[in-house]
Design a protein around this nucleic acid. Structure first.
Lengths: 122, 122
DNA sequence: GAGTTGCTTTTACATTTGTAGAAGATTAGA
DNA sequence: TCTAATCTTCTACAAATGTAAAAGCAACTC
């Protein structure tokens, strides 16, 4: 279930709003990338094969919708990053983010808040 | 500079302690993976080509050391994850981690501490 | 000095990814 | 109904990745 760079872009475009046709996705991606329409089609097909996307037909035209949720994709990505690069735990990852990514004070404050909220919710 | 899964494993083994020979790396990886020695050699060579690792000769034997630091690799990985999956910012990433990864109370407490410390240091 | 051991370099080959052209089917317009 | 615009499916091909066997060279061991 690991997505490649290109696949993330497609998925991001799809998550933005779906169901969507290949053309719509192509349009959404228009600014960011410079892919031929068929390239996008191919990638969609491959994502369908990987069960990340579902394809249905509306007449002649294929309509796509995500099977993999953004949530899930993010979770997987983070998990695999944690595994590969941070000894499998989120702790060190977060630690690294906080210590080394030089959060702005504002960001830190927000984080603190999030943390406290989270504490109450659980 | 993006590392693949397999490359992370090699690099992790190398970061553990270096300079190291291919054999040493193979031994360290022994538990985790089941690769032929030559596979490891090949991967090291490829990492050398990508300038992630430096190779020097000690007699007949190649000795490897990282050129890419773990720090840097982590940074790159996080950055690219943030870009792909979190609209390019660390904020949302962290948010996601905290909100959706269900940190244990202990983890949360640690985090709070880290945050406060960080605050003082900066 | 012949064999075993261990390293190195070379070569190979399947799969996945990035990228897309070509050709065929369909639909919307003139 | 002929045509232009779109879609779709098929096919292609290079680069990267995963995985390693083969063959060659050096060194230790009898």
């Amino acid at each position: 279930m690991k997505l490649t760079e290109a696949q993330w872009q497609i998925m991001n475009a799809l998550w933005q709003n779906w169901p969507a046709t290949a053309r719509q996705i192509a349009d959404r991606l228009g600014d960011e990338v410079d892919w031929a329409y068929t390239t996008i089609k191919t990638m969609l097909t491959r994502l369908v094969n990987k069960k990340c996307v579902k394809e249905t037909k509306k007449g002649n035209t294929a309509v796509y919708e995500p099977l993999l949720t953004r949530q899930n994709a993010r979770q997987n990505a983070l998990k695999s990053l944690a595994n590969q690069a941070f000894d499998g735990a989120f702790g060190p990852l977060m630690h690294f983010l906080i210590e080394d990514q030089k959060l702005s004070d504002k960001q830190k404050k927000e984080l603190l808040q999030t943390l406290e909220q989270g504490g109450e919710r659980n």
